[in-house]
Design a protein around this nucleic acid. Structure first.
Lengths: 197, 197
DNA sequence: TGATTTCATGAACCGTTGTTCATATAGTCG
DNA sequence: CGACTATATGAACAACGGTTCATGAAATCA
């Protein structure tokens, strides 16, 4: 029997973590309060602390959750597509979706966590991991695109990957500061047609 | 006589504002404390409050200072260059410099202020102004580049401007989260050679 | 010189917020 | 059914940080 002794948890931990992630995503680390988390999850702060640890641990859990869901989704889109060009298009589409969301736009890792990263090595590590994963995924895609001869012209795959990620993060960043969700997407469109033909 | 009555201020207001700006730039709005500002400026918090107002007013003053110095510098570089291509190169160089700085990397407006903007209309306005200025400056440059026939191929100037700004901000953002200041610059290099020939 | 105005600063204030303590609750095990 | 263990939560705690109060200092003006 895998049932452990003691009172069972009344909530789904992953579900709660998802909601916690959204709070941090929207308000940032300092901006997020237990009060907001209580409202979002329906749980009391002590329960959250009991389940995850203090605020910093909660934030780190949220970062990891974000990385293993959102970031991996982009990587998966890149890797699983028929052609590299389609893969990049799919990845950009995910970003477009994130940029046009109502609440918590932008990227939790680069934007929000970036504020904390210079003063917290663990946070910086989460960012670095995600960044590297994304970078190599794009690099692989562009190398494949070179082999498929779909590139506008021969370019260094690593540099192209850097450009794609920088532009993507920049777009997500701008989306956070704008009311009309559409205009920032121009950057991704423009880049796509510049890279492919 | 332009000498006003009362005890004269013992410090240069602009100089202090520059230092205050650096504190916000490095720590963010919530992260910045009066204690750090005291250390940075050598003044007591009450003097700062007396001269500028409360913390939010201090932050707004810093944002405006940042905009009228850093952002305008990029616009000026774009407008004053001989050719549009040189102008874009000069603008990118400024960004490269900002990205390779030791302290307070990244862009105060898009990164730091972006955390506060969704909950403060005045902050959002500062961002919007800077964004628009940058965008039109690049758009003008790319239109000029089209006339000068230095573009790799005919592309919409507005979309290209969006791409340049998104990539620039993305690069600055990444620079904040990295130890080796060099690698993010690849994105700008890559974009430049993709746009021009 | 004395009155007046503005700047500088020590000190107290006060609210917000993260954390901890103590207790009630809901399950399993023997 | 009692013993035990883990979860849930009300309530008190503690501290960091922004703001305000009150006083001293430095200049100009009459």
């Amino acid at each position: 029997m895998e049932n452990v002794r003691g009172r069972p948890r009344s909530f789904d931990k992953d579900d709660v973590l998802e909601r916690i992630t959204c709070v941090f995503w929207e308000r940032g680390f300092d901006g997020a309060t237990y009060e907001q988390m209580e409202a979002e999850t329906g749980l009391k702060r002590q329960s959250l602390i009991y389940a995850f640890g203090d605020k910093r641990a909660l934030f780190l859990a949220a970062l990891q959750h974000y990385r293993t869901t959102r970031v991996e989704a982009v990587c998966a889109a890149l890797a699983s597509a028929k052609t590299a060009k389609q893969g990049v298009a799919a990845a950009f589409d995910i970003w477009r979706g994130d940029a046009s969301r109502q609440r918590h736009r932008g990227c939790l890792l680069v934007t929000t966590a970036g504020e904390v990263a210079p003063f917290d090595a663990d946070v910086a590590k989460q960012i670095a991991i995600a960044h590297k994963k994304l970078l190599t995924a794009f690099e692989d895609a562009f190398e494949q695109a070179g082999a498929e001869r779909s590139l506008q012209r021969k370019t260094d795959a690593a540099a192209l990957a850097m450009l794609a990620v920088a532009t993507g993060d920049g777009s997500l960043l701008h989306a956070r500061n704008e009311n009309d969700g559409g205009s920032t997407q121009l950057a991704l469109d423009s880049l796509f047609s510049l890279i492919f033909d």
